[in-house]
Design a protein around this nucleic acid. Sequence first.
DNA 1: TTGAAAGCGCTAACAT
DNA 2: ATGTTAGCGCTTTCAA
Lengths: 336, 336
Amino acid sequence: MTQPIATSREVAERVGVSRSAVSRVFTQGASVSPQMAERVRKAASELGYRPNALARSLITGNSRIIGLVVAYLDNFFYPQAIKALSHQLKQRGYHVLMFMAPKTAGDVDDVLREILDYQVDGLILASVAMSSDLTEQCRQAGIPVVLFNRTQPGANVTSVTSDNVAGGKQVARLLAETGHRNVAYVAGWEGASTQQDREAGFRAGLAQAGLTLNGRAVGNFETEAARQAARDLMSAPGNRRDAIFVANDHMAFAVMDVLRFELGLRIPEDLSVIGFDDVPMAAWPTYDLTTVRQPTDQMSIATADTLLTQIKDPIAAPTRIELACELIRRGSLRAR
Amino acid sequence: MTQPIATSREVAERVGVSRSAVSRVFTQGASVSPQMAERVRKAASELGYRPNALARSLITGNSRIIGLVVAYLDNFFYPQAIKALSHQLKQRGYHVLMFMAPKTAGDVDDVLREILDYQVDGLILASVAMSSDLTEQCRQAGIPVVLFNRTQPGANVTSVTSDNVAGGKQVARLLAETGHRNVAYVAGWEGASTQQDREAGFRAGLAQAGLTLNGRAVGNFETEAARQAARDLMSAPGNRRDAIFVANDHMAFAVMDVLRFELGLRIPEDLSVIGFDDVPMAAWPTYDLTTVRQPTDQMSIATADTLLTQIKDPIAAPTRIELACELIRRGSLRAR
DNA sequence: TTGAAAGCGCTAACAT
DNA sequence: ATGTTAGCGCTTTCAA
């Protein structure tokens, strides 16, 4: 015997007022007398009434739902980020409709369309790309999109990242200063702007220090591929590397495991390793990883802020927000 | 110049048919002639029309949205589970409205109510408890609830877990068989059924083997608390423990780090460590953790299945689904 | 198979 | 400050 949830009509009838009155009581900044408010609230709580968000959205034209698309949930950076994002949005009265994207960009559009069917007020793409078709469609529909931890070169779309180029440069400078001369790089997925920027910054930094990159392998931001990258890098004959910069912490852990357990190397005595992100595990004594800290909380705040700004003011031009990141020096790096 | 998304009326006018006709074309199992379907679809795609899910929900009474509440996102078990859950639900045509619960159970109800405002068709609580008030309210409103990886003793509510008692027992048996005689336990948050069941099973298993628990500390399912638990356990004077069973992998890693780096102990030579969950990191050579594998995918499938069953048939009685779990023996355990 | 009419639950002018 | 009216975009009887 499923008893349906009370409607505003029932509350109105019980109190003997109009449905508009009930509506106003539950609407921010509407004008109602205190006694009306009290009587309505009382009846509402007796009946267990709460406004139907869907019906409200249908008429106000905004759902207070933000679509969030995530791909790399196995990288610890993202659970952290999701938590922060969801927290920020909640504080602002928004909710998160989440979707796990396939890493292959093909199907993302389909899924995005499904999300759009729910009249989301905005869209956050965490390390996910969308077609320029869909970007355009969102623009036309007036739905702001923010790219989180990724930029999309050609597309004229808002993004929030840290300054990955500067981060890469800092790593190069640190390695040079600490006497490393034979450094290699483990790349992430080549299509990712974060990967590209970190590498570009790293190479530029090395060049400034009079060094060149001596070895490169692709780890695709995945554990297994990163392991293989480490093996490939170290099996190249005649090379005596003294440092590896890995495009993110997630892969750096995999690389360190291979160096230690398969190749019997000591870190940092035989080799320094540097990562990127500063996920919590990087601080664990087992890894004690020197890395570049991305300001997750600030990035989340900036994402929520710009998204909501654009929701309020759809004419606003896309911005590219780039936050400073900080080198965190730990035991995986040794001066030589 | 924000161009609004096309409505069914516009499509209807363009084709010269009624809005009902358009609706039928986009409704499963409605009767439309092939030529009607084709003309409407053509016009729809030209105008970029897709049915408004909110308006549809308002009238059909189901939103195809499932509310998902999660608390412990820093435990790697959950990102995995979320991924699996979201995947399962997507396959069945549902979407996930996500919320991060505060670990303090107080505010969960508030948040749940917000989710309910969106007329979700069902609710999944991952390691989160709700008040019996709200449980009752959901029952009355006909909204099925499934507890994922947690049971709620008094409450008559559906849950999906692995057989934590059996898991704990297996651990005890294994430790006994491999000659451990002085075993301690690091507990999770005491309010959690998983914690309680694992400990109960473990104690029962020890008793069957003629052993008793020799030391216990509470790690609350948190890294820092687990570290402290390890310190407390090992600093008890006169004790020569040979094994620690930790209530989940997430804490086990923290415990291992303390044993190795603060206390200078070797695992498993000086001490065996066993965890619970079998998160991906457990297989990494650094930890190589003996643990009890929870069947994440099966649990997710079971959760999605029962939830959707109950959505279709709201009269169905709550069930308590308990899936077998499997002991995974790795290097952190040594026969003595 | 198709169209006309009614209404899901709510809010937003417009009066009063 | 409150009630009346209209309508958000859609689906669903009911007739034809």
